[in-house]
Amino acid sequence: MNGAILRLEGVTREFPGFVLDRVSFTLEPGYVMGFVGPNGAGKTTTIKLILGLLRAEAGTITVFGMDMRRQALAIKRQLGYLGEKLALPDGVTAEWVAAFLSRCFPTWDGGRFQGYLRRFGVPRNKPVRALSKGNRTKLALAAAMAHRPRLLILDEPTSGLDPLVRHEVIEALRDVVAEEDRSVLFSTHIVSDHEAIADFVTVINDGRVIASEPRDRLTERWRRLTFRVDDPACGLDARLRDVRRQGSHVTAVTDDYCEDLRRTLGRVASGAVEASALSLEEVFRYLVGSNRSRGADDI
């Protein structure tokens, strides 16, 4: 764990009407972490804290083992960032962006940047204002990656794009990430985007991290179960949620699919217990839904 690319421990920041509450997670080298949460959950606030655009009131944030407050420039030289609002002036071209960023980053690779532009189909000499929104996003993505950052932070980069262009951007990102083995923190509320590239998922809701684990493990333990029972009124295991009965036919969801649950259900079920995987989007819905109802119970 010493070589973590990014580590947040108990990061807290309070605003009027919103608290980012003791956020903790770790991104290991080579992983793509999907940072998922509904709108207003605290994703952008967390990213701004990581980037040093906001200051935490409690907790620690280390990037490449360094503290942003003390070693900001050293960290930012190895960091690529692409936000929801594309910070590119209207009048500049891709050539201008390359010339500018090559002065900022000692590791800037002009050939790589041109390669990305060719691959993404972004014209080099058109001003940003003349580019489509998809091409602007791809240009910003190329600009964020051409200095070979050790960590790429993407904050809702596909927001506002039509589904086709969004798919193109995600495809481009997936190819690059797969080839170059870089660490990525990818925030979006569009969960399906994570299906394509994330191998680690952190879910945040109402300012709190409610899950942070490898995507495979998350989708392994979350299952939809279908089985029949002899006694339609029989009690069922507490690990089952969203239980729906139709006579003797039962469907339910669990976040703890394991041998013990299979054995327990085997005792009440008449016949086989069928288990099917949930999509990441379904898991996300259950996670956020249960977190909200738990919050309501607390009140």
Binding site: L51, L53, A72, K76, A87, L88, D90
Partner: peptide, 18 residues
Amino acid sequence: YEDDKADAWTLFRTLPIA
């Protein structure tokens, strides 16, 4: 105005420029 439109402060603060 140009800074505000292009969110230049965020851009600069995320780049390795003091």
